[in-house]
């Protein structure tokens, strides 16, 4: 039998630089590791069955629209009509849900962005209004960061955002965030 395979992050320092802290970090970037992600779409005519199953399994009321509802380790983030991105900070098997479920744990890399200048930094890449009056904890958006598709949601008021980006775009996204964050004081760490 072959040797066990080692999991690797989408990042390596030479394509996703780790800017060294410069004074007070206005922006903190973290790769969120060890997440379980799945795209979940309700089968036609079986929407209520899925809602019941999610409620029973996770105590979560499936959100309608671009919202995130979390309970414990698990969250469901709206990803379009009848579609969600299921996120768990631990090992969770979403495949048992009565829905079209596709594992995305490796398909997306999630970057956590926080700090007093997080919003200002993100504004260099996305056109979404992230002002607290327009976007808060529980809000989500499928949008783009310059030319990269992203799925973004807010988890903490402070603010902290989580941004899911297609794995093969993650290094570019990271570079662009670091480029914008450097003038604002950045502290960045990832799993590469």
């Amino acid at each position: 039998m072959a040797e066990p395979l080692v999991a690797r992050s989408a990042f390596r320092p030479h394509v996703a630089p780790l800017a060294s802290p410069t004074g007070v970090a206005g922006v903190t970037l973290r790769e969120a590791e060890g997440l379980t992600l799945a795209s979940v779409a309700a089968f036609r005519g079986r929407e209520a069955e899925l809602a019941d199953a999610v409620r029973a399994a996770y105590g979560i009321e499936l959100p309608a629209g671009p919202k995130r509802v979390a309970s414990g380790d698990v969250a469901f983030v709206g990803a379009g009509p009848g579609k969600w991105l299921a996120v768990s900070s631990g090992a969770t098997d979403f495949a048992g849900l009565p829905a079209a479920v596709a594992d995305q744990s490796d398909g997306r890399t999630v970057v956590r962005v926080s700090g007093p200048r997080a919003r200002e930094t993100l504004a260099t890449l996305t056109a979404i209004d992230l002002h607290p009056r327009a976007f808060g904890v529980g809000d989500a958006a499928l949008t783009h960061a310059a030319s990269i598709s992203i799925h973004l949601w807010q988890v903490v008021d402070a603010p902290t955002y989580e941004i899911a980006v297609f794995r093969t775009f993650a290094a570019t996204f990271w570079r662009w965030m670091v480029e914008a964050a450097q003038s604002r004081g950045v502290e960045a760490r990832h799993g590469g």
Partner: peptide, 14 residues
């Protein structure tokens, strides 16, 4: 729209 079919891009997953 009447068909029960769902698409997910998994290019980056595999």
């Amino acid at each position: 729209p009447e068909l029960d079919v769902h698409l997910a891009s998994i290019t980056d997953q595999w």
